[in-house]
Design a protein around this nucleic acid. Structure first.
Lengths: 249, 249
DNA sequence: ACACACCGTTCCAATAATTGGAATGGTGTT
DNA sequence: AACACCATTCCAATTATTGGAACGGTGTGT
């Protein structure tokens, strides 16, 4: 296991608990000897990726603030998609999410919240496995079979049964969108549409999602057209913006 | 030079240019052999810290979005300071900045922009050397002499002459604030006040800054009291918030 | 159509960094 | 005062990292 992997683990760990951690706690969490963890943390601290609190404890570093900002600027897709997403939100009064595939995961790169009290929250950069949830299905539907195989492997026997078949995915690819009703999380309904490039490859998925409680049976149906339309608009906007297209994934 | 340092260099480089980069370009920028750079990039890509664009080029990765968000949550000081900073901005109609010291640098951890067209921009996580600029002076004034020595070493002969003497810094420490007029950047005027903990150690510096063009001679003077007051409020808020205090640096 | 140039990728022995058990020093507790 | 706990330092064994060289693919110029 390489140093980078360990470092990433440490940072992830420091980020997911709240409050700073003691050396011992970090070492245990990443299951590494204390001495190794110590060196790692010290070096990360020098780089500003980890911060030493006044009392000697470790917390996630401020340089990651900067890197987060840099990453933000760079996902050019965001810039062109956000206004269109906002439009969709304003018309439908539900949250809108933009996700891309990265390996066998999907990553949220932009979100526009509905004003609703009960709303889906997916912070930027959140990763979750492909195959489940409306956007997870759409992104998978447009991936090659290698990705499908990998996703399959990562699932348990139980989960594998709920995974859509290649045949079902083909249907979704043909129509360009997918709906999910509580498949991602109980009580969450969503429609997700594919943002395609000129060659018909997928760039991202736009998702309109809201609490099931607010959704009479036919409401989800009314989501489909606006979402697909927004996906088309984003695709068009990307095409109109050479730089954004280059950076899109 | 360790792997982590190189990795950080690569990420920093990918972040500071706009648009994705070719392997060769990255290798040259960080002055490493192509083969080494290649391995590094491939591993970083697996970790999601770097993204491979469709055309094979490399860009800063989406996982950094997530890490940025995590870092955000963790700087507890932000949470207590932001409302107070906003108040100061609204009263003075100029931008407000919160910086902490990290080694021999200061890092911006929160900012509230004035609505003004011409305004200082310091993205979150920006690092700049201590000793110059109002907040750089305040943060230095409260640091021990080891930090002073380090800062001194990093300066050129030329710059060293403009560095405040320990004696001058003591004065600033006594009154708790510093002003700078174009010392950081030409045309930028600012007043910065120290946020102190119970023991009188510095936690952060609050800075009120604006374009010199908008500042008649005595206007900077009117900045002092409100800024110092805001610093006191933040200090009080931190004390009232045990968690924030723990995480403060 | 061919050769050349360029770029990314793979390979592997030499190298240099990482490793982690054990010893050390410091702090707070019983 | 003795103990327990934690961070820190040390160093020989180990392991990952290194980078020059060779390879294969793509596009450019002749």
């Amino acid at each position: 296991m390489s140093v980078l992997q360990k470092a990433a683990q440490v940072i992830e760990e420091l980020g997911s608990v709240d409050g700073p951690m003691r050396l011992g706690a970090v070492a245990e969490a990443v299951s590494l000897p204390k001495s190794s963890t110590h060196r790692l943390l010290t070096e990360l601290a020098e780089l500003g990726l980890v911060t030493r609190c006044a009392d000697g404890q470790y917390a996630i570093g401020t340089r990651l603030l900067r890197w987060g900002q840099l990453a933000n600027r760079h996902v050019g897709l965001r810039a062109v998609a956000l206004p269109i997403m906002t439009g969709l939100r304003d018309r439908m009064h539900e949250s809108v999410l933009l996700t891309v595939r990265e390996g066998t995961n999907r990553v949220a790169i932009a979100s526009v919240d509905s004003g609703q009290l009960l709303r889906p929250v997916m912070p930027l950069g959140t990763r979750s496995p492909l195959g489940r949830g409306a956007s997870g299905i759409v992104l998978l539907a447009y991936s090659d079979e290698w990705v499908y195989g990998e996703v399959q492997q990562q699932l348990t026997e139980e989960e594998r049964r709920t995974l859509l078949t290649p045949r079902q995915l083909r249907t979704i690819r043909q129509r360009g969108w997918a709906a999910s009703d509580s498949s991602m999380e109980s009580g969450l309904s969503a429609v997700s549409a594919a943002v395609l490039d000129e060659q018909g490859g997928i760039i991202a998925a736009v998702t309109l999602a809201g609490a099931r409680a607010r959704m009479p049976k036919d409401r989800l149906q009314t989501f489909v057209h606006p979402t697909v339309e927004a996906a088309r608009e984003i695709a068009a906007a990307v095409r109109g913006n050479a730089i954004a297209a280059e950076e899109s994934l």
